[in-house]
Design a protein around this nucleic acid. Structure first.
Length: 589
RNA sequence: GCGGGCGUAACUCAGUUGGUAGAGUGCAACCUUGCCAAGGUUGAUGUCGAGGGUUCGAAUCCCUUCGCCCGCUCCA
């Protein structure tokens, strides 16, 4: 998140358009809605389906090194223990009793100072605070500046009712005791923290009708873990060879504290995730004698056998960028955030966020993480099942090595270790596995949000432009400039007038011809200009109008031709009906 | 969860000191040999977010609740 929000109400207009034209509705609206859940209407469902298809095509069908998976939303709860979600998604949180700000219980910095208590507070506005306030006066903090700080803090949280901070009168000040390195006070406000309580971001449910504690299960907070859990089965059944990937699209659920920005942060959302498994760098080294590392300007167009994880990571960033370009999100609207060492989760080696410039700020569309072998290792340890991959090529390479070469490899691996506390024994064990052709693959994880993508596509497509007609009257044209490939409706077909049966019949013929190949919308009501604009508003890229020339009127030279109108330029041209299908198919595939 | 703002037709919004709803757009039907929200005629639509209270009477006042938007811990 960065960039100041735009001053115009672009986002509101998009939300309004989405509702009015059946793209996105609030879930359960007739019952007052439910926070963080959104439905896709007729056009939104088409849009989302198109997006989902482009991902699936680009990531699985058009590649020979990626296969698909479609796993359940509810899985064995142990999966979430192994993945770390039970622990990291169920942090103990404590709240400041004054500011209500939350902190993770294990993230409270110890502080020293005097515990102060105020019995109550009141303001000239008539506002009163009738409860005790306990707050830490930090070591070295001047009593007056401390009181000023307390007033400000109280005023901030009382809202407008309390008036100006300096007018607040603190009552019954009392010094309780002096404490050293206490973790009971909020790091910023200094206010007393309440009891720690669990804060679970995973949605729970019960499997089985008894619904006891033993039946607790979770709705998956990400689709990725199923891929790791089924890694063995995919390997055993699909004749895949590392490097290869498993892709999956599906729903995921998170009990977000603050759903916001329309569909951007929802509690139920859809992910498109790829886990791309690669050989550990050590295996690459053993096979090829070297590992190609990333350098500026490296050729990422075709994967090479001697690539190390860094190259693969960069490769996927490039692939995903090309994907976004193919559906209309170019370099001008995207941004990248390379996480620093400090941002990274302990198991991640690198992570890049691909960001989109939303009207409410630049925010994440996709994260591409290099996760090492963390996940598979975790599942191997927790499940007790072997998740190592047997690499024939590696085995053959190692069989050709002398014992001396092997021991010098171990020594070299140890001296170049990236994990500081790892022992020589552990390194030796791992290397012995490698010499037998065994390793746990490392993984590159491009993980994208489908709903976020849909929102980005909408925000990117939304345009209001001023058009001036021949009479010099100007007005606003609302248009969604979807790439034809992902537009919910590809073409609108219109008889110029609906009270002429010949025109209607011909238009119906054109619809029947196109319908098996694409989403077509037929409209005969109102004036032709209105029908064009209606389609502009939902992003239909082409409009076809059947007129009397189509039927052979006039000099007959335009028989069997129609007007083809292009959404963005609003230009019209005459095209034979027989050429419509090839023309349109070329644009939308 | 806390603070601030908001909730009236499909959408955008009016609605006076309490007297049971209005505009524009859109939508529907018909007319029109004509291509950029064209023109004409006709028409439909609201538990005033929900529940409760005060009152002879509530969109309007009070309480509760739900949702949305903006700020605090989130990373698809």
């Amino acid at each position: 998140m960065s960039k100041p929000p735009e001053t115009d109400n672009r986002m509101e207009k998009i939300v309004s358009l989405c509702k009015r034209r059946g793209i996105i509705f609030q879930s359960s609206e007739i019952y007052g809605g439910i926070g963080g859940f959104w439905d896709y209407g007729p056009l939104g469902a088409e849009l989302k389906r198109n997006l989902r298809d482009t991902w699936w095509r680009a990531m699985t069908r058009e590649r020979d090194d990626v296969v698909g998976l479609d796993a359940t939303i509810i899985m064995h709860p142990a999966i979430w223990k192994a993945s770390g979600h039970v622990d990291t998604f169920a942090d103990l949180m404590r709240e400041c009793t004054i500011s209500n700000k939350r902190v993770r219980a294990d993230h409270v910095e110890p502080q020293s100072g005097s515990i102060m208590r105020f019995k109550s507070a009141k303001a000239p506005t008539g506002w009163t605070l009738d409860r005790e306030v306990t707050i830490l006066m930090r070591q070295g903090e001047h009593i007056e500046s401390f009181r000023k700080r307390v007033r400000q803090l109280i005023a901030q949280n009382a809202g407008a009712a309390a008036g100006k901070p300096e007018d607040i009168e603190l009552q019954g000040e009392e010094k309780i005791e002096v404490v050293e390195r206490s973790v009971d006070f909020h790091p910023e406000s200094g206010g007393l923290l309440n009891e720690a309580r669990p804060f679970n971001l995973m949605l729970r449910t019960y499997v089985g009708p008894t619904a006891t504690e033993n039946d607790i299960a979770y709705l998956r907070p990400e689709t990725a873990q199923a891929i790791f859990a089924q890694f063995r089965n995919v390997c055993d059944s699909s004749r895949v060879k590392v490097p290869f990937g498993i892709g999956q699209i599906g729903k995921a659920f998170r009990n977000e504290v603050t759903p916001k920005n329309f569909t951007f942060r929802s509690r139920e959302f859809e992910q498109m995730e790829l886990e791309f498994f690669i050989k550990p760098d050590e295996a690459v080294k053993l096979i090829h004698g070297k590992v190609t590392a990333w350098s500026e300007g490296a050729d990422l167009s075709e994967p090479k056998p001697d690539w190390g994880w860094e190259m693969w990571h960069r490769y996927w960033v490039a692939q995903r960028t090309a994907y976004y370009a193919s559906i209309g999100l170019g370099a001008d609207v995207l941004d990248y955030y390379w996480q620093s060492r400090n941002d990274l989760a302990h198991y991640a080696r690198a992570c890049v966020d691909i960001l989109f410039k939303f009207p409410f700020g630049t925010d994440e569309l996709e994260g591409i993480a290099a996760r090492g072998s963390f996940d598979l290792t975790q599942h191997q340890n927790h499940s007790g099942k072997q998740l190592e991959y047997f690499d024939e090529e590696l085995k053959a390479a190692c069989d050709a090595m002398t014992p001396e070469q092997k021991s010098s490899f171990v020594a070299e691996t140890f001296s170049h270790r990236t994990t500081p506390h790892i022992s020589l024994e552990e390194i030796t064990a791992t290397c012995d596995k490698l010499f037998k052709g065994l390793y746990i693959p490392h993984v590159i994880e491009p993980s994208a949000g489908l709903d976020r993508l849909a929102l980005a596509i909408l925000a990117n497509a939304f345009a209001e432009e001023e058009v001036t007609d021949e009479k010099g009257k100007s007005e606003i044209r609302t248009v969604l400039r979807f790439h034809p490939r992902i537009a919910p409706v590809k073409v609108g077909v219109f008889p110029l007038l609906k009270n002429k049966p010949e025109l209607v019949a011909k238009a119906r013929e054109v619809v029947a011809m196109l319908r098996p190949h694409m989403a077509v919308f037929y409209d005969e009501t109102g004036a032709i200009g209105r029908r064009y604009r209606r389609q502009d508003e939902v992003g239909t890229p082409f409009g076809i109008t059947i007129d009397f020339e189509t039927l052979g009127e006039g000099d007959g030279s335009q028989k069997e031709t129609v007007t083809l109108r292009e959404r963005d330029s609003m230009e019209q041209k005459r095209i034979p009906i027989s050429k419509l299908l090839p023309f349109l198919l070329e644009k939308i595939l």
